[in-house]
């Protein structure tokens, strides 16, 4: 399964990088989203997916062992990453709107010309 997910991640990265290299700023933003999802997956995979079972401590037990559950640390990291991704996405979108409003173009190559007057 790891192999499949690893290939999937590679595919996501390939698509993301391809999108990043476009001149259109909308595609660039899509690329950022794809890559952030892929990166989250890498972190998730690094905790190991062989163990399954939710990462909670049972009602009677006092402690849990890693044998019976998914590693909780990557989950905590990804959880904040997702919410931050949400904030950053909103920010990029606002930035893009402003960029388009100011320059009237969505071609990134125009950007290099506008800042040297």
């Amino acid at each position: 399964m790891e192999l499949v997910i690893a290939i999937f991640i590679g595919l996501l990265y390939a698509s993301g990088v391809y999108l990043l290299l476009r001149r259109s700023i909308v595609k660039l933003i899509l690329g950022v989203f794809v890559i952030s999802n892929a990166t989250n997956l890498i972190i998730f995979l690094s905790g190991g997916i062989t163990r399954s079972g939710v990462s909670f401590i049972g009602d009677e037990a006092e402690k849990a062992t890693l044998e019976t559950m998914t590693d909780p640390l990557p989950q905590a990291l990804i959880l904040t990453a997702i919410v931050i991704g949400l904030g950053i996405a909103a920010y990029i979108l606002a930035l893009k709107y402003k960029y388009f409003e100011t320059t009237g173009t969505h071609d990134l190559d125009q950007l290099s010309k506008t800042d040297q007057k």
Partner: peptide, 17 residues
């Protein structure tokens, strides 16, 4: 904070756009 952030963002976007 999360409630405030998301509400702030989307109300601003809806308002300005």
């Amino acid at each position: 904070l999360v409630v405030g952030m998301i509400v702030s963002i989307f109300t601003n976007i809806m308002d300005v756009l």
